[in-house]
Simulated assay, not measured.
Amino acid sequence: MNTPKHKNRALYDPKFQWSFLHPKHWGTWLSLLLLMLLALLPWRIRDPIAGFLGKQIGRHIKKARHRARVNLELCFPEKSAKQREVMIDNMYTSAAQVIMAMGDLSLRSRKYLQQRTEVFGQEHLDEVVAADRRVIMLVPHCWAIDFPAIYWASLGLPVAAMMKPQHRQPVYDWLISRQRLQYGGRCHARQDGIKHYLRSIKEGYMGYYLPDEDFGLEQSMFTDFFATKKATFSGLGKIARLTGAAIVPMMPVYNDSTGKIEIHISPEIKKLPSGDSQQDANLLAQALEEMVKSYPEQYMWVLQLLKTRPDSTINPYKT
């Protein structure tokens, strides 16, 4: 793969503002300070604390838990309500463990990050890189979603990603951007369009692509997703054609038995692009399901993943 050319392509790179010190942001700073202190604890001490707090907090976040219940009921109707509640508890346990580990990305060294990361299926990525081909990594919305991109950048394989700026939380937005860009790489704001993201991939950056977002009827095809139907983006095949990139699925997992971030890489989706939008969407949904079904507790079931329905205009998350 060619070495990226470092040009300014409408990059999203927020800077520190003195307004961040306004009292209205003090709560954010206190929470960030707590996360940084927790990052100094050994993971064997931190994880049980995180797991307990995550499970308890998750039982009191009513709206988010409701969304998770809707998603799991539609995807896993064969499971009992009690089984799905256990799945949600496990999800919040994983979420808290990852969130409390986020401070590692700012306080710990490059070497520490690399030692704390374990890659499975490295040969699938090596095959594409050795062929000097462009890469788009297909990464589900898992709680450890930021870790792989930062890990690859630390190894000299910088990543380009599209993201939604968190303007309502500017301090958090600034800090998370510092984490994401600390070893190189690029972030592009969604409101600036996709062309800058595509250009970065063509220049040699590995693309980071989230396959599970619901973009509505106009940009989607309905596909099978576990026991239900999901509105799946139909344009990934076009992106692959425009960039000439290989689409490589990649699942980030936090292993609370080893305290490591695991990156599970699957073989390139060689049938994508297929030349047919429905088939491209089907391939995308199949890859997503394959990744999620092995580690359901790692997935962000709290998102409005199934907002667009094939048989109704009613938002299923409305109460």
Rank of each mutant, 00 (worst) to 15 (best):
R134P: 02
M100G: 15
Q166S: 11
L72Y: 08
L175Y: 06
R180S: 02
Q115E: 15
M163H: 10
V129M: 05
W174I: 04
A160Y: 01
I150D: 09
D173L: 04
F120E: 14
P165F: 02
A153N: 03
G103T: 07
A96T: 05
M100D: 13
C187I: 08
S200Q: 05
N90A: 15
A189D: 05
R190F: 02
L125P: 08
I88V: 11
K195D: 06
H188Q: 07
W174N: 10
E123V: 09
K82S: 11
L155F: 01
D173S: 10
A161R: 06
K111H: 11
A130M: 05
A189H: 00
A161V: 00
R134F: 08
Q115K: 14
E123W: 04
R178E: 01
G103Q: 07
R178A: 01
E85S: 15
S154C: 01
V129Y: 01
Q114D: 08
L72W: 06
I99Y: 06
P148A: 08
L107K: 05
F120S: 14
R186E: 09
L175K: 07
M163G: 11
T93N: 13
C142L: 08
N71G: 03
A101H: 14
A153S: 13
G103N: 09
A131V: 04
R69N: 12
F147I: 15
F120L: 06
K202M: 13
V70Y: 09
W152M: 14
R65E: 09
I88P: 13
K164C: 02
M137Q: 04
G121D: 03
I194K: 12
F147T: 15
T117M: 06
G184N: 02
A153G: 08
H196A: 10
T117S: 13
H196K: 12
T117Q: 05
R110V: 07
Y92W: 13
A149Y: 00
P140L: 03
R116S: 15
M102E: 13
D192L: 12
Q114L: 06
I99L: 15
V98R: 04
H141D: 01
L113H: 08
I194L: 10
W152N: 10
P158G: 00
H188V: 05
H124G: 01
L113V: 10
R110C: 10
R186G: 02
R178V: 00
L105Q: 12
R110Y: 03
R65S: 07
Q169S: 08
N90M: 03
A95L: 11
P148F: 00
M162D: 06
D126H: 01
Q122T: 07
L125R: 03
L198H: 07
W174S: 09
H167S: 15
S177N: 01
I145L: 13
M162I: 09
R134T: 04
